[in-house]
Amino acid sequence: ESFERTINIAKGNSSLGMTVSANKDGLGMIVRSIIHGGAISRDGRIAIGDCILSINEESTISVTNAQARAMLRRHSLIGPDIKITYVP
């Protein structure tokens, strides 16, 4: 059984350190890789294959690959914290 989780990740000045791609069925974006030493890796809660539904409350539903990457990059630049809703 999968259910949504919303977490805050304190990334400070470091990068999030993950790559994503659009989910084929349009439901959010899938975590493709996690870079060791990045904020996601240090936090430890998000794993490869998890589905991200929103970043800082901006929905990732029906985004393209390019939009998913641009959204991740944009939110990575805002502030020291990032809020991610995902399904493990």
Rank of each mutant, 00 (worst) to 15 (best):
I84G: 03
A10G: 07
I35K: 15
I7F: 04
P88L: 03
D50R: 00
T64D: 11
G49T: 02
A68K: 02
T6S: 08
T6F: 04
T85D: 04
I46V: 07
T6H: 06
S76W: 15
A22N: 10
G38L: 06
I30W: 04
S15F: 14
G28L: 01
G44Y: 00
S59N: 06
C51I: 13
P80S: 15
L16G: 00
A70G: 08
R32A: 12
G28D: 00
N56P: 02
S41W: 14
A70S: 14
A66T: 11
G12K: 12
T19Q: 11
E4L: 10
I48P: 13
P80E: 14
I84V: 08
R32M: 10
N56A: 05
F3Y: 10
R45P: 00
L53S: 06
I30T: 12
D81C: 09
N13S: 12
L27F: 13
E57S: 12
S33Q: 12
H75S: 12
M29S: 01
R73V: 11
V87A: 08
V63D: 05
I35R: 14
L53D: 02
I9R: 00
D43S: 03
S59T: 07
Q67E: 14
V87M: 10
N13E: 11
L72H: 04
S2T: 12
S59R: 08
I82W: 07
R69A: 14
S33C: 05
E57T: 08
L72N: 03
I48A: 09
M29K: 00
G12N: 10
K24T: 12
I52S: 01
L27G: 15
G17F: 00
S2A: 09
G49Q: 01
G12V: 09
S21T: 13
I61E: 12
R69G: 10
I9Y: 00
S76L: 04
M18V: 09
D25R: 13
M71I: 15
L77M: 15
T60D: 03
S15D: 15
I48S: 07
T64N: 10
E58G: 02
I78S: 15
M71S: 06
N8K: 13
S76F: 06
P88T: 08
S62F: 10
N8E: 13
R69D: 14
T64S: 12
H36K: 14
H75M: 15
G37W: 02
S54H: 05
D50K: 00
G79F: 06
G28I: 00
I40G: 00
S76D: 15
V20F: 07
V87D: 04
T64I: 01
R74N: 08
A10L: 10
M18S: 02
M29F: 07
L53A: 03
P88D: 04
R42K: 15
D43C: 00
A47F: 06
I84R: 02
I48C: 10
I48H: 06
S2M: 13
M71T: 09
I84F: 11
S76I: 06
T64F: 01
R69C: 11
E4M: 11
N65L: 06
D43H: 02
S33G: 10
S33R: 12
E4R: 11
N13P: 09
S21E: 14
S76Q: 10
E57C: 08
K83I: 05
D50W: 00
V31H: 04
M71A: 09
I82H: 04
L16Y: 03
D81E: 13
F3L: 12
G26P: 03
A10K: 15
G28P: 04
V63Y: 08
E1A: 06
G26W: 04
G37Q: 07
V63C: 13
K24V: 11
R42E: 10
P88I: 00
M29P: 03
S62E: 13
I48K: 11
V87P: 00
E4P: 10
S21R: 10
R69I: 09
I35N: 11
E1F: 15
F3S: 12
L72F: 06
A39V: 09
G17D: 03
L77D: 14
R42V: 11
S54T: 07
S41D: 14
I78V: 12
T19Y: 10
F3I: 11
V87N: 05
V63F: 07
L27N: 15
I61R: 15
F3T: 09
V31G: 01
N13G: 11
L16V: 07
M18N: 03
S54M: 13
P88N: 05
D43V: 03
D50Q: 03
I82T: 12
P80L: 07
E1S: 09
L16N: 03
A22D: 07
I46W: 00
I61Q: 15
S33A: 08
D25S: 13
G79H: 09
T85I: 05
R42Y: 05
F3W: 09
I7A: 05
V63A: 10
N23M: 06
S15C: 13
N56R: 02
M29Y: 03
T85P: 00
S21N: 08
P88W: 02
N65E: 13
M18P: 04
I82V: 14
L16S: 01
I55A: 00
G38E: 12
S41C: 12
M71W: 06
N56E: 05
E58M: 06
I30D: 07
I61M: 14
C51Q: 13
I78N: 14
I40D: 02
T6K: 05
S54V: 04
L77N: 15
K11Q: 09
Y86L: 04
I46C: 00
I30P: 00
E1L: 09
M18R: 02
S2R: 10
I55E: 00
V87E: 06
T85M: 06
N65A: 11
I40H: 04
T6V: 09
K24P: 15
E1Y: 11
A66M: 08
N13F: 09
I61A: 14
A10D: 11
S14M: 15
I34P: 02
S59K: 11
I35G: 11
K83H: 07
I9W: 02
N65K: 10
V20Q: 04
G38I: 04
R32P: 01
N23F: 04
R5H: 09
L77R: 13
I35V: 14
T6G: 03
I48M: 07
T60V: 15
D81P: 06
A47Y: 04
S15M: 11
N23L: 03
T6Y: 00
G44V: 03
I7Y: 00
R32K: 14
A70Q: 15
M71K: 05
I48F: 01
L27K: 15
L72S: 03
A10Y: 14
G26Y: 02
A39G: 04
T64Y: 04
R73C: 10
I84Q: 00
I84K: 03
M18L: 11
R5T: 08
K83C: 08
N65G: 10
A10W: 12
I34A: 00
K83S: 09
A47N: 14
S59W: 02
S76T: 12
A10R: 14
R69W: 09
M71V: 13
I84L: 09
Q67W: 05
I30H: 07
H36A: 15
G44A: 06
I48G: 02
I52L: 06
S59G: 05
I82L: 12
A47V: 07
D50F: 02
S41R: 06
L53P: 02
D25W: 07
K24I: 08
R5P: 01
S2W: 06
I78E: 14
N23V: 04
G38P: 01
I46T: 02
A10Q: 14
D50T: 01
I30K: 07
I46G: 01
Y86E: 02
G12H: 09
I48Q: 10
I61L: 15
S54K: 15
T64P: 05
I48D: 05
S33F: 03
Q67A: 09
I82Y: 06
E58T: 06
I78F: 13
S33Y: 06
K11Y: 07
T60L: 15
T85V: 08
K83F: 05
I7V: 08
A39L: 06
H36L: 10
E57G: 15
K11F: 08
I40C: 06
S21I: 11
G79E: 08
I40R: 00
I40S: 04
I55W: 00
I35Y: 10
M18F: 08
H75F: 12
D81K: 11
A66E: 15
G49L: 00
A22G: 09
K24R: 12
S33I: 03
R73E: 15
H36N: 14
V87I: 14
G26A: 05
F3V: 11
E1D: 11
V31W: 01
S76K: 06
G26F: 00
R73K: 13
L77P: 07
R73I: 11
I84T: 03
S41T: 03
D50G: 02
N23H: 14
P88M: 04
S15W: 09
L27R: 15
T60I: 15
A39S: 06
P88K: 12
I82N: 03
Y86V: 03
I46E: 00
N23T: 07
N23D: 15
E57P: 00
E4T: 13
A22K: 13
N65Y: 06
N56W: 01
I48R: 08
G26S: 07
T19E: 12
D43W: 03
G49A: 02
S76R: 07
G26E: 06
S15Q: 14
S76H: 08
G49H: 04
N8F: 12
I52T: 02
I52M: 01
S59I: 05
D43Q: 03
N56C: 01
E57A: 09
F3N: 11
G26T: 06
V87C: 10
